Amino acid sequence: MKKEKVESLEQARTQIDQIDASLIELISARQFYVDQAVRFKRTVQDVQSPERAEDVVRKVRESAQAHGVDPNLVESIYREMMHHFIQRELKEIRP
């Protein structure tokens, strides 16, 4: 996404609102693929996969640093999102 200076608070808020809409779209897409992935998982261990979670966290922290974003903030957001999706997946595989 191209970042441009704005000339007013209204312009900044408009850009923030557009980014928020894009973030929701991306989270929706992530959820769609999480829902697809659960079809290939058979056990609670497959769903929880701490190794995969830590790999994702490592990658997003590195990406955050490269983009000048606080990696602790990004990690916190991702851990919350992954926790939510894991709970969603567990509902699918548990009787």
Score class of each variant (00 low, 15 high):
D55N: 05
R39A: 11
R30V: 13
A66Q: 11
E54S: 02
D55R: 09
E54H: 14
G68C: 01
A64V: 01
N72F: 11
Q36L: 14
Q31G: 06
Q31A: 14
E62N: 06
E51D: 10
R88A: 13
R30M: 11
G68N: 00
R39V: 01
V74F: 00
R88Y: 13
V69T: 10
Y33I: 03
E75A: 11
E54T: 04
A64K: 03
R58T: 12
V60Q: 10
S63F: 01
Q65Y: 01
H84V: 09
H67A: 13
E75L: 04
L26M: 10
Q31E: 12
I77S: 04
E62D: 12
V56L: 13
Q65L: 12
D20F: 09
Q45W: 06
E54C: 01
V44C: 01
P71Q: 04
A21G: 03
Q31S: 09
I24W: 08
A37V: 00
V44F: 07
E62R: 02
D35K: 07
F40G: 06
E92W: 10
K59A: 13
G68K: 06
I27H: 02
G68M: 01
Y78A: 08
L73M: 12
S22A: 14
D20Y: 03
E80S: 14
F85Y: 15
S22M: 14
L26R: 03
K41H: 07
M82E: 12
E92V: 15
V57R: 08
M82Y: 02
R39M: 06
S22Y: 10
S63I: 00
R61F: 07
Q48G: 12
I86Y: 04
V47S: 07
R30G: 08
R30H: 11
I27N: 03
S22Q: 11
I27T: 02
A53C: 10
F85E: 12
K91S: 15
H83Y: 12
P71N: 07
E54K: 11
R42E: 15
F40T: 05
E51Y: 11
E51Q: 09
E25I: 00
Q65C: 09
R61K: 15
V38F: 01
V74Q: 02
T43M: 08
A53E: 13
V74I: 12
A21T: 02
E89V: 03
V56M: 04
Q45G: 07
H83I: 06
G68I: 02
E25C: 07
Q31W: 12
S49C: 15
V56D: 10
K91T: 14
E89M: 12
E25R: 07
R52C: 04
F40E: 12
V60R: 04
N72T: 10
V69H: 03
R79Y: 05
F32G: 07
E89K: 06
Y78G: 00
R79H: 01
S22P: 00
S22F: 10
E89A: 13
Q48W: 04
